[in-house]
């Protein structure tokens, strides 16, 4: 019971510190810019709703899935534990009677509702501004958004546990691996989380005429396989992070 209370405190404390941090303030920048973009495009007022849905989907894939989600999850994923490491306040958590695995799970649990809440609010905002087209997009793309967000968070937590300068590594990953490798020909693109997110989004938008890039180039897998891949990536990253965090000695804390 005491352990549960301590863990709840850790989750609450971490979530509150992240919410009222400069990370929240700066992630609002891409969110606000993208909302202004959708407001300006006013997809709901287009005569050709199929074209409007196609264009809106293109924006969601290239702008939201490939940029807003990785960047927002980067801000929370790396700062939840990485911020404590950077400030050296992690020591105050590590000397409490909470097992290390639970400390990491607490940090992860605190960042999930924050990042997911912000990103779903942002996605909801786009869909609201896009009218009927937005309603369709919400239903079609919600699983891709949720799964990608959680997968990115798990990967960035792994970075925060392993690397001292996790933000640096995460940014190289988000901008280089995801954008460059994720768009390369062949199966190398499967190292990118965004590839699976795109597969899910294209599969979700297919009934409404959204076309994936040419199959010989994009080489899509099934939506079920992509779902399992994202879930597997999340679990594997978290398990690796837990294993590393359990045994890692952070000598730089004092």
């Amino acid at each position: 019971m005491r352990l549960l209370r301590a863990w709840q405190t850790l989750v609450w404390l971490s979530a509150r510190r992240m919410l009222f941090s400069s990370s929240t303030l700066v992630v609002l920048l891409p969110v606000a810019i993208s909302l202004l973009f959708v407001l300006h495009r006013n997809y709901g007022a287009w005569d050709d709703s199929a074209r409007a849905f196609d264009r809106f989907s293109r924006f969601l894939v290239a702008g939201y899935l490939l940029f807003v989600i990785p960047i927002c999850t980067l801000a929370y994923g790396t700062s939840s534990l990485g911020g404590d490491r950077e400030d050296r306040t992690l020591l105050f958590l590590l000397v409490r009677p909470i097992p290390r695995a639970l400390v990491l799970l607490g940090k992860f649990s605190a960042s999930v509702p924050l990042a997911l809440g912000l990103l779903l609010a942002c996605f909801g905002g786009y869909c609201l501004l896009a009218g009927e087209v937005g309603r369709l997009a919400w239903n079609a793309y919600l699983p891709a958004v949720v799964l990608s967000t959680i997968a990115y968070l798990a990967v960035f937590h792994l970075f925060a546990v392993v690397f001292r300068h996790a933000t640096t590594v995460a940014l190289i990953y988000a901008l280089f691996m995801e954008l460059v490798l994720g768009h390369m020909p062949g199966i190398i693109k499967r190292v990118a989380i965004s590839y699976y997110g795109r597969v899910l989004m294209y599969a979700g938008g297919e009934p409404w005429g959204v076309r994936a890039p040419p199959a010989q180039w994009f080489e899509p897998i099934s939506a079920t396989a992509a779902t399992w891949a994202l879930a597997g990536l999340t679990v594997a990253s978290l398990a690796a992070a837990l294993a590393v965090f359990q045994w890692r000695e952070y000598r730089d804390l004092t």
Binding site: R2, A6, T9, L10, L13, R17, R88, T89, T254
Partner: peptide, 24 residues
């Protein structure tokens, strides 16, 4: 510890209280 950083946004009371809560 020989360390002079805390959760700087908190007051002294809030910090010690948070540490007590982390003991369950």
């Amino acid at each position: 510890p020989d360390l002079h950083v805390f959760y700087e946004e908190m007051t002294g009371f809030q910090f010690v209280y948070a540490m007590a809560r982390l003991h369950g």
